[in-house]
């Protein structure tokens, strides 16, 4: 019997690829199936225009939680992106070799800490600290700070790896032209590593959007559109984790709509990122 190893590999890869794709579709299908009863009953509008979120009384406004998810994620990205990219630049272009290595190990350690540990630290240290400034302490700010801590290593490590991949000839070439160190970093290395930096941003945003335990522990989880950094907030993920265990009927179904909303936000985000990358390629 003759078996062409290439052929086997081809079909194996095709098969595994199909399985991954099918898994994503099945998850979406499952979300739709579970969310469908309540969507049919009250319509999609109820999730945006109902007065409040009181699922046991048939009121399903998810808007404060959608905003909560967006605000905490956005805040964390604003803090973590410059921090992460600058620490990668430090690591790659400025730090002495031994320090860069040590720094990388530390970032890897930071990335490996389970989210529930961040949550505990936030609940026992960060929240009481903010509480002293302005009660109750569990707030948008606490969520943003915890998320920043959690996504910072993701951004820094991926940015570091993509800076390392910038061809040395670019860098030596720019040095030969007499450009300053910063000019080289900003004018040559950053544009050359752009797609890697975008990937870092997308992965970090994804993690921030989907983070549940840590956010649930520090954000206060009150369903109200926050008006300031010190207001408590509930995210879509926290909503599911808090209420799923005891939810029945329409309530349960409405929680699946929360999950669906989260998927929509993530899909929207990826679409925007793809678009930005494509635009960059056109003009870059």
């Amino acid at each position: 019997m003759h078996l062409n190893p290439d052929l086997i590999l081809l079909w194996l890869v095709r098969g595994l690829g199909t399985i991954s794709a099918i898994l994503v579709l099945l998850i979406l299908l499952f979300l739709f199936k579970e969310a469908f009863p309540v969507l049919r009953e009250v319509g999609i509008g109820a999730f945006f225009f109902d007065a409040v979120w009181q699922p046991t009384k048939g009121k399903f406004n998810l808007l404060p939680m959608i905003l909560g998810t967006l605000w905490t994620t956005l805040g964390a990205m604003i803090l973590a992106t410059p921090l992460g990219i600058l620490s990668a630049i430090f690591c790659q272009f400025y730090a002495p070799d031994f320090l860069a290595k040590l720094y990388r190990r530390l970032l890897e350690l930071l990335a490996g800490i389970p989210s529930v540990v961040y949550g505990f630290w936030g609940l026992l240290v960060l929240v009481p600290m903010i509480n002293r400034i302005q009660p109750p302490g569990a707030s948008v700010l606490a969520g943003i700070l915890i998320l920043t801590l959690m996504i910072l290593p993701t951004i820094a490590l991926i940015a570091d790896a993509s800076f390392a991949k910038v061809p040395t000839s670019y860098l030596t070439g720019s040095q030969a032209l007499g450009i300053s160190q910063w000019g080289m970093v900003w004018g040559v290395a950053v544009p050359a590593a752009k797609s890697g930096l975008m990937t870092a941003g997308i992965l970090a945003t994804g993690r921030a959007l989907g983070e549940t335990m840590a956010v649930l522990m520090v954000c206060g989880n009150v369903v109200k559109t926050p008006t300031g950094l010190f207001d408590p907030v509930r995210t879509l993920t926290a909503n599911i984790a808090l209420e799923m265990a005891y939810a029945l009927g329409d309530h349960r179904s409405a929680l699946f709509v929360s999950g669906l909303m989260l998927m929509v936000v993530v899909i929207g985000l990826i679409a925007v990122a793809e678009w930005v990358v494509a635009e960059g390629k056109n003009y870059g």
């Binding site: 609940l123 569990a138 522990m217 206060g220 989880n221 009150v222 408590p232 509930r234 984790a241 808090l242």
Partner: peptide, 9 residues
């Protein structure tokens, strides 16, 4: 001001 899940929290 804060909404929690289980007793521990």
């Amino acid at each position: 001001d804060v909404v929690i899940g289980d007793n521990q929290q």
